[in-house]
Amino acid sequence: MKLSLKASQRLWTFAFLVVPLSLYFVVVIGPLLATAWLSLTNYTFSAFASPEFAGLVNYQRLTGDDYFHTSLYNTLIWMVAALVLPTGGGLILALLLHGRVRGANVFKSLFYLPITISMIVIAQTWQWMYQPDWGLLNTLLKTIGVEKWKVFWLSTRGLALGAIIFAWSWQQVGLSMVIFLAGLTSLPGEMLEAAQIDGANYRQSLRRIVIPLLLPSSVVVIALAVINSLRSFDLVWVLNEGGSGSSTLAVQMYRETFKSLRAGYGSAVSMVLFAIAAVIIVIYFRRVRRLEHLYD
């Protein structure tokens, strides 16, 4: 018996999808639902007690948990900083390097090289900057004669988070630059020339033409920066384990779950993280899917 074309296509479709999608649902979607369930229980990893339904107790406890408030606040600060430092810095670098700068490719490579380096190595790199005794920053402070040069960058409240976010931005700026550069390259050159002939100066053409046309790239850059800021675990963990008021939601989730073994409570922190990510997913799909063809 020969299968009809339609039936044969159905069969192939099934064959192509079954393994990859099963894996995806078992490893990603299933556990996501399981986390949602665990966040409503008092699970503690105990082999003797299975998770017991506890309603919204974990979420209620979150509202009164100062450590959680710090983590949430820091995560939001991080998201805002992500919009300013790497995004703004990347835009400036892209504008400087776009056009006829000799050796632009070498400059570009040097700026985006850190993207290819692991956060673990980035953390190491910045430890040599922040080390109290001989780190670069303190060495500089000492050299210019600052009396109290021994600043504990990573273990002083109020400094630690900023120091970590700065190191993170240092890596991420190359990523924003690359995406903005791609956006700039797709700008119609004639438009800028026409503006120049009409007597527009650099600042005018920047504000009226370049920035508006970079909007689609900006959406991608911003979505990326925010999502990456939500994932911020590696860098914080290696630099100071979320101490000195530098904890983020991702760090707290790890601490509650694997240090304090409060898996139910840790799951509730995860769900807060997921709620923030979900907002971004919705915004992204609303805005970027319309703009997607620009990157095809």
Binding site: F16, V28, T35, R231, Y254, S270, F274
Partner: peptide, 29 residues
């Protein structure tokens, strides 16, 4: 190329995974 009923939703579910912070599946995994 082989779209079927519901394939668009399925695609969105897969692509949404781009945005999941891995922390949210760690414990069950």
């Amino acid at each position: 190329r082989l779209a079927f009923r519901g394939s668009e939703i399925l695609y969105l579910i897969v692509v949404a995974g781009l945005f999941f912070p891995p922390q949210i599946v760690i414990i069950p995994l």
